[in-house]
Design a binder for these strands. Structure first.
Lengths: 240, 240
DNA sequence: CTCTGTATATCGTGC
DNA sequence: GCACGATGTACAGAG
């Protein structure tokens, strides 16, 4: 195995060998993984400590660090993209990752490294995702009758003092309509959002007629339905 | 290397060898990683496809799958805990992960496996985290004067028709107070949340005097400050 | 299961 | 940089 290979890996390496693989990997913008017994300390937006245990640590060339245990989607500790890594050896293999704004530091100490690897990554592809809120918006703009007969979209992302409205338009009677789209079942927060937009737009337009607010989502919770009714807002069921 | 080792790894394995390591690993509740050129297809709450490229795939014994590229904190594709994995070979190494409620499927096809590993994980430790909203609440309960002189907490998680209030109490004049805590700078959503609680509690109490609503956070955005003023709500600055 | 709210949320976009 | 909203958000707690 040479450094020109796209993968450099060692099982049960010495701390020094592990250090070499990690350092070389970080320098060459490889994706580096370390598995072994470690402790983890974090200080920044919050603070945390994690006692000794086996974890899988991934360092990405963009400065991301992820510490994974055997459970859960979420890493037990991490550092976001843009951090600077630093690896050193004392009685353990030490990985330190820092950033500023906000000031944050992650410190991983490996007593024992069971596996280390550096991967050269070539990934030219972008994820193609559908079924998002934007897809839902395009569908409504293609066929405004999905909202109600006579509905006419006038603009998307219309700016109000309360933020940008998903779809702004008019109904069959020429009344202003604010449409808020959600790709999944919504709770009270979405009602609050729609209410803010309607309120802001009524002020903005100095309109005599009230502005209608329509929440478009697959479904709503009971509490959200009550809030909609209280505020005179409407609901249209639409799957993404 | 034998199966009693805590790590089983192969660099540039054949598809068949990779299949063996992955299958054995999944069967023995190991944490399994695969690195190589693959495509990824997802169908469930949304749909996605990802063309060929080098990615790092992790399968956890709890049924989690994570597909990572060389960038970002977030996996490009994933499957949450509780999924069932299935690995097979045709012209590629195929990993399929499924779950129900909601019905979701992830399919990863490796044309070429550059590295595969199975790790036995022993992790007895729990993360100790501080600086959360709960810590902030305990600090306020220990020293209610942090809110204002004369404030007396009466209960936490008090239930209202709009949900549970962080801290419910009385001010020096015996007026009811709703406190909403946030560990970081807040925007309009938090104001809406507090407003809902205040409104619900006023109804609940049939109180003649208005209920005060106090947002406690390190800081607020301009828009949130405006909304607070419009609704007659208050703000107290407090770091977590 | 659903509902609700928190998160070291992350991420993208616009200003 | 900050602000704001979407996310296949994940996750925990309560009902």
């Amino acid at each position: 195995m040479t450094t020109t290979e796209s993968v450099r890996a060692r099982t049960n390496p010495s701390i020094e060998t592990a250090h070499s693989v990690v350092e070389t990997g970080l320098d060459s913008d490889a994706l580096v993984t370390i598995f072994g017994e470690c402790t983890v300390d974090y200080e920044g937006r919050a603070e945390s400590t994690l006692g000794p245990g086996d974890r899988h640590v991934m360092c990405k060339p963009d400065g991301t660090v992820l510490v994974h245990t055997d459970e859960g989607h979420q890493p037990v500790n991490w550092q976001p993209p843009g951090c600077t890594h630093e690896v050193s050896v004392d009685d353990a293999l030490v990985l330190r990752s820092e950033r500023s704004t906000p000031e944050e530091e992650l410190l991983v100490r490996f007593r024992d490294v069971e596996h280390v690897a550096a991967f050269d990554v070539t990934d030219p592809e972008e994820l193609s995702l559908s079924g998002t809120e934007e897809d839902l918006r395009e569908r409504v703009l293609d066929d405004p009758e999905l909202i109600e007969p006579g509905f006419t979209p006038l603009s998307t992302e219309r700016e109000t003092p309360a933020g940008a409205v998903d779809i702004y338009g008019e109904d069959a009677n020429g009344r202003s309509v604010v449409v808020e789209l959600k790709r999944r079942r919504v709770g009270p927060d979405a009602v609050g959002q729609l209410a803010r937009y309607v309120e802001a737009l009524e002020r903005d337009l100095h309109d005599e007629a009230e502005v209608r607010g329509i929440l478009v989502a697959p479904s709503v919770t009971d509490r959200a339905r009550t809030l909609l009714a209280e505020r005179g807002l409407e609901f249209v069921s639409l799957e993404p």
